[in-house]
Amino acid sequence: MTKQEALYKYSLRLGDSTLILGHRLSEWCGHGPKLEQDIALINIALDLLGQARSYLSYAAEVEGKGRTEDDLAYHRVERNFHNLLLTERPNDNWGNTIMRSFFFDVFHYYFLSELTKSKDEQLAAIAAKSLKEVTYHVKHNSDWVIRLGDGTEKSHKIMQDAIDELWDYTGEMFDMDEVDETLIKEGIAPDLAPIKDKWLQKVKDVFREATLEMPEVQEWHHTGGKMKGIHSEHMGYILSEMQYLPRVHPDATW
């Protein structure tokens, strides 16, 4: 695998995960439990969408075939998306949404902290800009995990159920393949193994404060999205909604 191929796929994976999670959060627009929380989630969704644009623009540039960020976001089919399966999990309830974001945010924070040291200037710059946003995402969602975990009996149960449902999707964040290895050698991508240790520690600390039970760490976990483009049954619905407008009105502009 050439460095260019690896860099294209790497940027695409990052772009897709931020795009799909951003889209999932945007589904809360107008449905938040309180106006204030509605806005809070949409702010985070917009941050993620902005990050996705940076990654996808860069992927298109690296690919060098004249495609744009919009081509990548709106004119690819499901099998060509490489987001983490975690990011396409349904919103379900508020607790599930918060837990999904919390798992991703903590990973995202430690990951971006390392990516700022990348030898690829563009990725390092995107990471530095995103890190400020993600630092707040971690705070916002950790606060909610603690508030609800250590809240009422009902809220505690909802959060524990969310952990049990989502836990098997967290392992994929730390999987590495040829794409990672090629770029690690070049000093472009960070090794995900030490990031996993930091992630586990932070999740454990927050769960302790939230009086939530930490599941056992297993080798097995769901995979497919990031590396193979094999998705859960939810992905088609996400794309049909997200891609509808540019596909039906190809030249639509504001």
Binding site: L35, E36, Q37, I39, A40, K139, D143
Partner: peptide, 14 residues
């Protein structure tokens, strides 16, 4: 609206 001052600060920020 917020449940306590910490949430109030975050909500005000958002």
């Amino acid at each position: 609206h917020a449940a306590d001052y910490e949430m109030a600060l975050e909500n005000a920020r958002d």
